[in-house]
């Protein structure tokens, strides 16, 4: 039996083709000594999770303009628990659940709203969260208000953090603890969004997005599925925020910033809105461009460039990079005498 047959036999799922990518992901920290580069990659993993969460909500026709609210709620809830003695696993999961619960509450408000009404309410909700967190210390001193929580790497030891998950060897340096933590969290997120979008739930989301009235006529329970979208999406956002806070050493109300709300939108649109691969490709390209521009000492310029990218994409590339990438691959495949089926992107 030749190699080709072997591969054909065992490559039952196109997903197996991603195994090399996973392997690269697994060995990357061993091959790279540059700590800052690893940091950029970890941030990319974080943005992939966060953008996927935004994308899932948008997939159901609900585009949030204030998703940072849930990033922050997850981060704050988890941080407060962990520095008060909860185990990191409990902290992170509770953080994500809290975000999800608040998401359900906001979802109930938003269920009747469309497009920009929804955009305004979600945008406003992030602003309201800033006020609540800023003023929290007036009621409970320990919540620190605008100061947030600093020096989390002191309080939340990454060894405990990763070690208590029971996956990582305690010998790993903190850098790699975090790397693998984010890597597996990202993998889980992508897998989960894939399963959801390909399931009955995902079908209902798409139906609602395309035409709410028709979807209702087909028997889709609009309210239920819109709320499900909110619950899942905000859970992932809260999860990402809960992991991000200790990695970034601190958390403060800046987490709720408008920029943090807009970033997943720009990334998802760049990749391709409403696809599973879109947020991945988008977060990867935009974050690498973003950090590279940072290395070149750009600060205002890179925000400007981000705006230009967004406008150009809306005008000329509304489906993002995904179709382009597929096209390039198809072209190459054709040249090489191969025909390529649709990728599970």
């Amino acid at each position: 039996m030749g190699v080709k047959e072997l591969v054909r036999k065992y490559a039952v799922s196109p997903f197996l083709a991603y195994i090399p990518l996973v392997i690269i992901g697994l060995i990357l920290p061993l091959a790279i000594t540059d700590d800052f580069f690893i940091r950029i990659i970890v941030l990319t993993f974080f943005y992939i999770m966060y953008s996927s969460s935004w994308n899932l909500l948008a997939y159901s026709g609900q585009a949030s303009l204030g998703h940072a609210a849930f990033l922050g709620i997850g981060g704050f809830a988890s941080t407060i628990l962990i520095i008060n003695g909860a185990s990191p696993v409990v902290g992170v999961l509770t953080g994500a659940l809290t975000a999800s619960l608040v998401g359900l509450f906001l979802g109930i408000i938003c269920v009747r709203l469309k497009e920009w009404f929804l955009g305004l309410v979600t945008f406003g909700f992030a602003i309201i969260m800033v006020a609540i967190v800023n003023e929290s210390s007036v009621f409970i001193e320990a919540l620190n208000g605008a100061l947030g929580f600093i020096g989390l790497s002191g309080s939340i030891d990454p060894h405990i953090f990763g070690g208590s998950l029971g996956i990582f060897s305690p010998d790993l340096v903190p850098r790699d603890q975090y790397y693998y933590l984010f890597f597996f969290a990202m993998m889980a997120t992508i897998l989960a969004t894939h399963l959801i979008i390909k399931s009955k739930i995902g079908f209902a989301f798409a139906a609602i997005r395309e035409n709410q009235i028709e979807a209702a006529m087909m028997g889709v329970d609009i309210t239920k599925y819109k709320l499900i979208a909110f619950i899942i999406s905000t859970f992932i956002a809260g999860f990402a925020g809960a992991l991000f806070a200790p990695y970034n050493y601190f958390i403060n109300p800046e987490m709720f910033s408008v920029h943090n709300s807009f970033m997943p939108i720009i990334m998802t649109i760049s990749g391709g809105i409403g696809t599973i691969g879109g947020p991945v490709i988008g977060a990867l390209t935009i974050n690498l461009i973003w950090e590279q521009m940072g290395l070149w000492g750009m600060s205002i310029d890179r925000l400007l460039i981000l705006g230009v990218i967004l406008v150009l994409e809306i005008l000329f590339l509304p489906k993002g990079l995904m179709p382009l990438i597929k096209k390039v691959i198809n072209r190459i495949s054709k040249v090489m005498g191969l025909t390529s089926r649709d990728m599970p992107l």
Binding site: V7, A11, P14, L16, A17, Y18, P20, L21, I24, F37, I40, I41, I281, L284, T285, L288, I289, E291, Q292, I325, V328, I329, N330, I332, S333, M336, L338, S340, R341, M343, L345
Partner: peptide
């Protein structure tokens, strides 16, 4: 499929390496 996907992977890798 596998070949196509490997191409994607190579593309992404190239992006990573060239960018950062």
């Amino acid at each position: 499929n596998v070949k196509g996907n490997i191409l994607i992977i190579l593309l992404i890798l190239a992006a990573i390496i060239s960018a950062g």
